[in-house]
Design a protein around this nucleic acid. Structure first.
Lengths: 333, 333
DNA sequence: TGCGGCAACTAGAACGTTCTAGAGTCGGCC
DNA sequence: GGCCGACTCTAGAACGTTCTAGTTGCCGCA
């Protein structure tokens, strides 16, 4: 009740149960070395005193912390889904997660340094923006897994989506619907932009449509998509693939305001399967990353590194899948 | 480089600098008791050895952890915004934040228990769903601040939005546009639902429109809004206030699919100012909670409790504001 | 000369765990 | 009867900090 009153410790439980501190520790950890009878009794006392282990002391002593640090971005709805997957994977394997967020006013370096002080055993970074060299240095200190970003340095493990393949899926889908004049709005200087753009180009070539290939400058945000849409309206294609869902919504809005029917006149494919893309209102056909698999692999990889079997660097590239919704349809005759 | 190599500790720095561990500690904490010269020298060595303080050991020893535990929900885009504000507020006041997420498969109790083990000094819960009695018990162990939820128990501090007032703003806005036949789609069993519903009723009465007051069963999700819309189409009002933004989008979609123009035929007001409500495509008029103020107050309150001045229980109710966008317009003639 | 006081520094005990090493106790087997 | 092994349990040292209570050395002042 009083704010100042100390928390109950192993020593308190030990005293109340009339045994040694070490024994209580054994019982709490579910380690061998205690009789069933005492085990029962100690647990009872612990429950009565409302004992909660002190993870700081625990980790401090036992050296290896079963603790994974995760850096995520608050403005990324997609990261929330990933967190869910990471929690699942970590729990299955007996690890804890500790989170550190990147916000508009809290940068990645700050987020990472917080985790370092918490002495987590490894870092999982969601779409890190810091230079690859910096990632490499970091990886010299503890295992680092980068998600959704390609990193060449061999110290850093990578789990990401096969973005080229994602664009192939999108283009294949559109071609199957009879489209030939398919444009692409790219992500500008954003990280995965180059690979998606290249994937689009390859896909077009594979279908013998390089003559129609057309890339418009875009970006990360909704307004970037809107700008690209205005540019496209001069000589509109029958279909557009967009760097991400956010850009797609901007594009969709401008198209519709200019009287173009979607998908009647123009079909649109986004990227990410963001939660809002599922809204009935937007109902966007989009490329979905396999969140569950990615999360599982990232955690597994981090743990392998922690366990110290000197594993080879590996980049894990996960195939995405296409989610067909209401913004794509047959090409106009 | 090798995975197993220990991290550098105070002792390492002390040895390298030729001083005692205690002195290095003093320097690192920026505490008085070291000459400028040694201070400089020690810092230099620390930097060279890439020393990072071990927050676990630090907190373990110094008892009071300047650490606030925050429980948030991943499926709530609104919580992300709040996190941003909380980080800002905590940093201003010299506290750290440690996050624990509630996911579809990780419940609130698990999230909270994780934070308890981390021995944070206080808990900030975003829209907690657990029973009030449980919150009260928890508050017996450490300061607890509940956000966006009314709690009667006096041990628990509360920071929330004046939801009744939010509904007044919405109704006032619609009435000023000439609407009289204004319906409300509520949040079903969701927490803040009752207060918003009551706020709507009061506002209607205040305008002498109780004859038009009509509450339709809704819920938290998009499909709940869609269902409510279908129900409303039998005898459509000229305006609707909805429990939250998600429900609004479902409602909007059904209305438009049935050929109703928004805001031409029907105006719609949401609640939350979710990030997607700002999308040009949705462009929803909505009630925005004052995130920055709420975050600042929550952190301040937690710290007051920690600092132990036995403060009186206080419920802080923050006025929201109306964000007028494109889904509201003059009532049809 | 002696002493008080201050600034700079240090030794060693905490904090709450886990872990290693060993001390009892008991039953069984030669 | 003595010894071994298995099973319980315990004492005490870690872990990397912070904090308390010093110990120096030096200056100024009576």
């Amino acid at each position: 009740m009083t704010v100042g009153d100390r928390r109950t410790t192993l020593a308190d439980v030990a005293a109340a149960a009339g045994v040694s501190v070490a024994l209580v520790s054994i019982v709490m950890r579910d380690a061998p070395g205690a009789s069933a009878a005492t085990r029962e009794r100690v647990l009872e006392v612990a429950r009565r005193l409302d004992y909660q282990p002190d993870s700081r002391a625990r980790l401090l002593r036992s050296g290896q912390s079963r603790l994974l640090g995760v850096v995520f971005g608050v403005q990324h709805p997609f990261h929330d889904d990933l967190l869910t997957g990471l929690y699942d994977a970590a729990e299955r394997i007996g690890y804890e997660l500790t989170l550190s967020a990147v916000t508009p006013r809290r940068d990645e370096r700050t987020a990472i340094s917080g985790l370092l002080q918490d002495r987590c055993a490894a870092l999982v970074l969601l779409g890190p923006q810091i230079p690859a060299a910096e990632l490499a240095t970091l990886a010299g200190r503890l295992p680092v897994v980068a998600m959704m970003r390609a990193v060449r340095q061999r110290q850093v493990d990578v789990v990401r989506t096969d973005d080229a393949r994602g664009m192939h899926l999108a283009v294949d889908h559109l071609v199957a619907l009879g489209h030939r004049n398919i444009a692409h709005v790219d992500g500008g200087r954003w990280l995965a932009s180059a690979e998606r753009r290249q994937g689009y180009r390859d896909a077009m070539r594979r279908h013998g449509l390089e003559a129609y290939a057309k890339v418009v400058n875009g970006g990360f945000g909704e307004e970037d998509g809107a700008r690209a849409a205005r540019e496209l309206l001069d000589d509109p294609p029958t279909a557009v693939t967009v760097f991400n869902d956010l850009g797609s919504t901007g594009l969709l809005d401008v198209l519709r305001r200019h009287g173009r029917a979607v998908p009647g006149d123009i079909s649109v494919v986004g990227y990410d399967d963001s939660s809002f893309s599922r809204l009935a209102h937007i109902d966007l056909t989009t490329v979905a990353q396999d969140i569950e698999t990615m999360a599982t692999l990232a955690v597994a990889r981090a743990v392998e590194r922690i366990d110290g079997t000197r594993v080879a660097h590996r980049e894990m590239v996960i195939p995405p899948r296409l989610v067909v919704r209401g913004t794509t349809g047959p090409a106009p005759a």
